[in-house]
Design a binder for these strands. Structure first.
Lengths: 338, 338
DNA sequence: TCCGATTATGAAAACGATTTCAGTTTCTTG
DNA sequence: CAAGAAACTGAAATCGTTTTCATAATCGGA
């Protein structure tokens, strides 16, 4: 393993000059530059980035915290942020908290120990009071999350609106008994959607019915389970709002298996607009989230905060959601008319 | 940002003693240890891991190269490797090559520049001759990939066998015109499966028919496209082997849309045993891959190689695949009998 | 009581880069 | 042709740790 010292020696020059060549600094004569490059090639030299980072006090690495990469929404988010990051010369460290506050805290230490220049939180497991002290060590940007008490930039989607338009759509189809089915309540995403859900309901003079609420559905298996829970109610709902396409798909699959017709007997609406919405039969009505835009913005903000070194300011960037109507909420013949 | 020097000063001790406390070295008296811990807490001190890594010549970070995180197979692989890594105190850097040899090469530089202790290749885009020189800088382990000329450890699944059992299953169902539909031919995964596919065919005295071969299908959209290509053939196939559940799902969705009955008019077999196989109707026959086992083994090997510093030895660890029969290849009534 | 372990502590040298500062050479320009 | 500016180069300090080496204090055993 050769060092800058070896290159300097081989080229018959000083470390300084070699460093200048590496970093394209001015004031290096053409012949010395050639000598250096030759020596570097001969030795297969590459600058040690640890030494570099130590000296320059930056790593060009950003940590991205997510709950689970196998959740298609998050893998899409990761992909988008990664592309944006690599475009700006940044590396990404993906950290899966697996919904554990302890793991989240461990990962926050990447900031404290200077392994990363900043942290993007796409999932929050701890109270903000626990997270806030890490701001002493570098910028934190919230992405797809939000916290009232956090004075940091947040890039998010208007989930209240998302819950609202989805529910309103079901109401417009004539449904009055509408179930609410979402994932981890820890996240603001779910609670915001619920606000929108309730708002739409109240506009139609309907009260939120707690027996129609299911708040622990993350995967397709949960969708199957909730389907049975709904059907076992004395007055089962005629429509259901779900927090993810996967859950919706599981529910639809189970419904069909038990002879329950979608959307005629049960209308189902998903969230995320994942590939599966167009593969299922019926295709799934869903809410599209502009993940790519949000990702790009989050990264852009992060880089700006790293550069400016001031990041304790609350800034909120919000992107709109869009309802995509498919077959799972409207009987097939009607779709063309919308 | 406080340093070890600040801690030492506050505690009235030397850097050395502080370092000893941090690293749990012997020969520190109890009272001094307390002084140090107190000072560390008061300052909110955390050791700078760059300085640490520079001195100790290791980062405890491993790079994992994959094509795309949104491919469910790879997100599952990432999740499994990540869990194993964090159990051993290692961080993972996920690198998406997006099937670009150039990007792959860029990521390999993480090894050269000492940002990572080793690289796990779950995707190979360059010729091995291009990759081999990086072995001068640290260990490389192949995971789910293989290369004849690479003298490094490989952890893989028996894809030849996978292609074989899947195809044999179709043959046993009476099919004779079987299409072959896989993804990127660059990877050995696909070529190994093709070997198994051909082997099964030849056991039944059937020749591989190039007009039934489609080698550029990665996503559900590709499945839809290939369905039409197959159907436009003068003698269209009665069964198709695909390289991923997503492609299979796309194909099935398109088939149903055009009134082609699965499995009666077209039997479809997937690969990976993803969630979607049980959500589609019909459910999809597929090949299960023990991703978790492979992931654990790959990480275990990597850590061993980092420790021992000898890693230019070819070692192959192979895990078996398992056929999972569902409805997309067998008409519904028959499934119970298998 | 003396001597060799054992325990406890710190000064200084690494690790491999960048940057500051100072010094030397070459170019402009009046 | 003199003098100030610009171009070029290198010695040494710096980033924040760990580790080696030296030294001092304490202990146990003959």
């Amino acid at each position: 393993m050769s060092t800058i010292e070896d290159v300097a020696r081989l080229a018959g020059l000083s470390r300084t000059t070699v460093s200048r060549v590496i970093n394209n600094h001015p004031y290096v004569s053409e012949d010395k530059r050639k000598l250096v490059i030759e020596a570097m090639n001969k030795l297969g030299y590459a600058p040690n980035s640890l030494a570099r980072s130590l000296r320059s006090q930056k790593t060009d690495i950003i940590a991205l915290l997510i709950p689970r990469i196998t959740n298609p929404f998050f893998s899409q988010l990761v992909e988008s942020i990664e592309i944006a990051a690599s475009k700006h010369g940044y590396q990404l460290i993906i950290c899966q908290t697996r919904y554990s506050s302890e793991k989240e805290l461990n990962y926050m230490n990447l900031l404290k120990t200077k392994q990363v220049d900043g942290v993007i939180l796409a999932s929050i497991q701890n109270d903000w009071e626990v997270l806030a002290p890490f701001l002493d060590y570098g910028p934190i940007v919230l992405c797809n999350e939000f916290n009232e008490r956090a004075n940091v930039p947040s890039v998010m989607l208007n989930q209240v609106y998302g819950g609202y338009i989805a529910t309103k759509h079901l109401l417009e189809q004539g449904h009055r008994r509408i179930a609410y089915c979402c994932g981890s309540t820890r996240s603001n995403v779910a609670s915001h959607r619920e606000i929108g859900f309730r708002k739409a309901l109240s506009e139609y003079g309907i009260e939120f019915d707690e027996q129609y609420a299911f708040r622990d559905a993350l995967h397709s298996e949960d969708g199957r389970r909730v389907f049975h829970q709904m059907m076992s109610l004395s007055e089962s709902p005629t429509a259901v709002f779900t927090g993810s396409d996967e859950v919706a798909a599981g529910m639809i699959s189970e419904a069909k298996k038990h002879g329950c017709k979608v959307p005629e007997e049960l209308a189902v609406i998903g969230f995320d607009n994942q590939t599966i919405t167009e593969l299922m039969e019926p295709t799934i009505t869903t809410v599209h989230q502009p993940v790519e835009k949000m990702a790009q913005k989050a990264l852009e903000i992060m880089i700006e905060k790293i550069r400016s070194r001031t990041y304790r300011q609350r800034e909120v960037y919000e992107f709109p959601l869009r309802l995509i109507i498919r077959e799972s909420t409207v009987s097939t013949k009607l779709i063309g008319q919308l």
